[in-house]
Amino acid sequence: MTGRTIVITSGKGGVGKTTATANIGTGLAMRGHRVVVVDTDIGLRNLDVIMGLENRIVYDLVNVIEGTCKLSQAMIGDKHDYELYLIPAAQTRDKNSITPEQLREMCAELEKEFDYVLIDCPAGIEQGFKNATAAAQEAIIVTTPEVSAIRDADRIIGLLESSGLHRPKLIINRIDPEMVRRGDMMDQKDVESLLAIEVIGLVPADEQTIVAANRGIPVVHNTKSPAGGAFLRIASRVDGEDIPLMDLEPKNGLFSRFKGMVGMNGRAYSHA
């Protein structure tokens, strides 16, 4: 078996890389794949918390790389009944504890056993970014519809291209459809025309995401939630399914009211 190693990266911090990694990983596992997610944010690990696996950590990424433990010993099985595993980052070390070659080697090992290896990349363009991107053959870039996040995403795309990672895909996270409707937030077209790469998903701002993260159960488990549904569709697209992107609609927008009137099943933010 040769799995696909995909890095989830952004440049700017706090835009939703870890959230996306947890949810796409879970989504792919829900679709029946063997998935491992790797947290490379050494020193600032989060992925374990969002996935509710913090209490089970014994060994971590740096232990594997340094040979303190076997690869399989650092893999923590998900709480749910899926073939989903986490390799947590070390919390007491820094980004220079591993090299790009070492991570590449480890991922090559994982690719033999898993369909998908997802790498949660730290923010920034320094060592941590270089480690995470060197190990992957594909990249997903997460941005929010804000100018600063988009500038950073543009920079990241340039860096990925110059290191041979071509055609990254884009997730636009935390879209507020009401603000877009008012013209106070960039929409998909604005972002797409600036970054000139393929959009693989639009995720609405959804407080369920935060509630789910606090509970340690990624929001994709709740497929009826706006963000959960969006992440499941992204996982399907990553998996090669052709699901068209749809406009997000505001909660109280004209369109959903209209739908309500004619008795259609108009749920707020019903697609992405």
Binding site: R151, D154, R155, L159
Partner: peptide
């Protein structure tokens, strides 16, 4: 022939 991006 491709987008000239931030930082380049």
């Amino acid at each position: 022939k491709s987008t000239f991006r931030s930082g380049e």
